[in-house]
Design a protein around this nucleic acid. Structure first.
Lengths: 144, 144
DNA sequence: CTCTGTGCAAAACCTTTGCAGACTC
DNA sequence: GAGTCTGCAAAGGTTTTGCACAGAG
């Protein structure tokens, strides 16, 4: 999913397409790393000075509530975001601990484990969080 | 692992066993939920007034660096902690979204997936985060 | 007795809120 | 034009730091 799709999705849901929102979406869309609100704000300043950090927070909240971006948890600030490549589709992340690059994968093969845990613990499981962390191919070579 | 083991472990590593540290460890040890620093501080005040929030932060950092407690990520503040039942052992969490209770499980059955992802993406995977969220048996009944 | 650990106060962040004016539709 | 959205300023939280004193070993 590229920025264009996100803005189209926003319009479809009746939100206004302000230059600020477009700018934030484009920063996320041109980036394969996870970014914190302050990172996004900093990158915006180069191209679009004058956008407030508050607007970044509000836009991130809007995009997240509408399922247009995802959060990353492992090894980063808890408030790290990423554009969503496949909106609506269940997926997980593979994160490079050196460069921060993120890859998606969809098949998490967790159904069997989920069923076993429900049987063994009596819990009713509704969702899960799965992230892998390591080195991406490029960073693997640099390290060697 | 109970509080006693944690304090023994601290002593073994040359850290001082102050009443504050014992108190914090005992709060964690008597609790099956995940707690934020402020939660811990609040619970301490009932029994041991006068312990500063700063000390809670410093003790949590110490315990975490020594692998004596674990963090919880899903559906909570990013700074949520839990006593570690099986120190050193690889494990994951099952979290109740109503009461916050946490259960451990050790076998995550992720080796096959990890190998597949390494083969398909070229990443070198070093660790992973897996948490399940749902309703514990008690809260499941209350909801029904 | 030594040196780590604590409490207080203050600083440094991060995030949210209120409000007047700007801009999209 | 109507109503949403933005920027500013300020408030509200959370986390870190500096320093003098207390207390564990």
């Amino acid at each position: 999913m590229v920025g264009k799709d996100i803005t189209a999705e926003l319009r479809k849901r009746g939100f206004k397409l302000t230059p600020q929102r477009k700018a934030i979406v484009s920063v996320l869309g041109n980036c394969s790393e996870h970014l914190r609100p302050a990172d996004i704000h900093e990158r915006l300043h180069k191209k679009y000075p004058g956008i407030g950090l508050v607007t970044v927070y509000r836009t991130l909240e809007l995009l997240q509530e509408n399922g247009l971006l995802c959060e990353v948890h492992i090894g980063a600030s808890c408030r790290s975001y990423l554009k969503r490549h496949r909106p609506g589709e269940h997926h997980h992340h593979l994160i490079c601990r050196d460069c921060g690059r993120v890859e998606d994968f969809t098949d998490c093969e967790l159904d069997r484990l989920k069923q076993r845990l429900e049987r063994e613990t009596g819990f009713l499981i509704s969702r899960h969080l799965l992230e892998f962390m390591g080195l991406c191919p490029q960073c693997k070579i640099k390290k060697a």
